[in-house]
Amino acid sequence: MASLTAIGEDEIGSKGTGDEFYAWCARGELRLRRCNACREWCHVPRVTCPNCAAIDWAWERVKGTGRVYTWTVVHRAMHPAFMGDVPYAVVVVELDEGPRIVSGVVDCPLEALEMEMPVEVVFERSDRWGDRVLPRFRRAPGSKALRGAGGIAR
């Protein structure tokens, strides 16, 4: 309850940058905001660059690869839209470019989920919360070299 701002559901996305983010997803491209001044990546998208305060962004394409930084498997949905999906995984993927992104997995049995598991983006349509093409992640067996990269210090 950090924000008291009363926002109707229909405004969510249209007032933020979500529409642009998901428009790229619908074209099969994962793009994040990158500052044209200092070249820092930023996710979630912001109005100004938190690093240099410039208001000069480009939506730049990321490789779409990264590692599972952490995850949870939800066995009891707290929102009715997801009750038919349990158990399902929520993963936080640390992209190779640095930012982390909240997502889910496809083609991955839940018991196979592992920390630092290399993954790559795929796009999947979902109507659970709005009707959107979402960036989801699948295992990337070919990118084993990524295993162990990053880790604790960031």
């Binding site: 309850m1 969510i12 399902y88 929520v90």
Partner: peptide, 17 residues
């Protein structure tokens, strides 16, 4: 909108449950 994050939660958390 009642949660911390507001628009952020709606755009980037809720779609993934």
């Amino acid at each position: 909108a009642r949660l911390p994050g507001g628009v952020i939660a709606g755009d980037y958390y809720f779609p993934h449950g």
